[in-house]
Amino acid sequence: MSNYAQSIQNLMNELARLPGIGMRSAERIAFHLLKQKPEEALKLADAIRDVKTRIRHCSVCYNLTEQDPCHICSDPSRDQGLVCVVEQPKDLLALEATGLYKGVYHVLLGRISPLEGIEPADLTVEPLMRRVASGTVREVIMGLNPNMEGDGTALHLQALLASYPNVQVTRLARGLPAGSSIEYANRNILADAIAGRQKM
């Protein structure tokens, strides 16, 4: 039985539910918040409330956004005919961080994982197909993780997109990451790198 007041214990329990935070860390954070001025500590509560009330999925690409459509989908300088399909909003942010991609996105909100019971109906596959059926899309780039489930999801989408012969289906290149060393690459990475070699 804990000796903490119920409200402190509640806070610690909630913090400990966050990923990577155990009871010791929760205790430390709780006491840090207790030491802060009320207006400072309540900023965290306000931020959590804001994010849960304002953030929603973009009705076009399913990215997380405050405005609908999101700033990418509503950007007239973006190529609306080029759609990069990613698993999670985090993947979209990683691609955006390169500053090189000028198309738009479609976030699946997961990947097909038969062993975990995640089916195509659990993802935003239907909205993607509706988007393609609208006729504005000319290329779909598979930006899914290069693992068994990611590849399976890409193949599933490719099969669905086969009924749109005017839509080109591509996938992100694979192989050696820049800045890495060949001696540390596993055989899958090297096999992909050899298969996807480019003319210099």
């Binding site: 068994m148 399976g152 193949l155 099969a159 596993n186 055989r187 899958n188 096999a191």
Partner: peptide, 12 residues
């Protein structure tokens, strides 16, 4: 890693 089954991944 000894085998990552890249061939397998080309067919659903």
């Amino acid at each position: 890693l000894l085998e990552g089954h890249l061939e397998l991944r080309r067919d659903l």
